[in-house]
Simulated scan of single mutants.
Amino acid sequence: MTKKESLTGQGEAKDKTNLIKKITATPANCQSAAAQRQRILDWLQRSSLTTLEAREKLDIMHPGGRCMELRRMGYNIQTVWTLELSDAGGLHRVGRYILQQVEDGDR
């Protein structure tokens, strides 16, 4: 069991693994800003996303920029600051992005 599985529970870790497979089934090597925004949106519709997750799992090096672009497009994405361990073991203050659901007429 990994550190993340012990923190989130095995069921949630399995769900995230399935989510990663589904999202990255699209052309993951397409690094256009539009493709990166779409990968973030696909993820956020199911779960929150941290900066480290976006870099490691979605291959998006600057998720904050993509989230800013999505906000300008009308998406209500909140940022919550959190402390997370990187794969190298360093503790980092990173953003956790959360898509707030809006009513149909709000966007």
Rank of each mutant, 00 (worst) to 15 (best):
D42F: 12
Q38I: 02
M68T: 14
L44Y: 09
E53L: 02
V102H: 03
L7I: 08
T17S: 14
S32T: 15
T82L: 09
P63G: 14
G9S: 07
R66Y: 05
D87R: 13
Q10E: 15
T8P: 00
R71W: 09
K16I: 15
A28I: 15
R55I: 11
T17E: 15
W43R: 05
M73V: 04
D42I: 00
Q36R: 14
P27S: 03
A28K: 09
A35V: 05
Q101Y: 00
G74W: 02
M68G: 08
L99T: 05
C30E: 11
R96P: 03
H62Y: 12
Q38S: 06
L99G: 02
G9T: 05
L91D: 06
I98W: 02
D59I: 08
A13C: 04
Q31T: 11
W81P: 00
V102K: 12
L52Q: 14
A33C: 04
L58K: 10
V102P: 00
A33H: 11
H62A: 15
L7W: 01
L52S: 15
R55C: 01
T24Q: 15
T51E: 15
R46W: 04
K16V: 13
L58S: 08
D87P: 02
D59V: 05
G89L: 11
R93P: 01
E84L: 07
D15F: 10
H92Y: 12
L49M: 12
E5S: 14
R66E: 09
N18L: 15
D104W: 03
D15N: 08
T8V: 07
T82H: 04
L70S: 08
R46S: 13
H92E: 14
L70F: 08
A25K: 14
H92C: 01
H62F: 13
T82D: 09
P63S: 13
R71A: 12
G11W: 04
L41N: 04
A54Y: 01
N76V: 06
V102G: 02
R46V: 06
K14G: 01
A33V: 12
K22Y: 10
I23W: 02
A88W: 01
C67H: 11
R72S: 01
C67S: 05
L83P: 00
L70R: 12
S6A: 07
V94L: 08
Q101G: 06
R66W: 03
G95L: 03
Y97G: 06
L91S: 13
I77E: 05
A54G: 11
L70M: 06
R71L: 08
L58N: 09
I40K: 01
L7N: 10
K14F: 04
L49I: 14
E69V: 02
Q78D: 14
V80Q: 08
V80R: 10
G65E: 11
A33T: 11
D87E: 15
N29R: 13
G74E: 04
L7P: 00
G89T: 12
R39L: 03
L19P: 03
G65P: 00
Q100D: 06
N18Y: 09
R96I: 04
T79G: 00
V80E: 13
T17Y: 01
N76E: 13
R55Q: 15
E69S: 10
I23H: 04
A13Q: 13
L44G: 01
L19G: 03
T26Q: 10
I23T: 06
A13N: 09
R66C: 10
K21M: 07
G74F: 06
L52E: 14
D104Y: 03
Q10R: 12
D42M: 14
N29C: 07
D15S: 07
P27L: 02
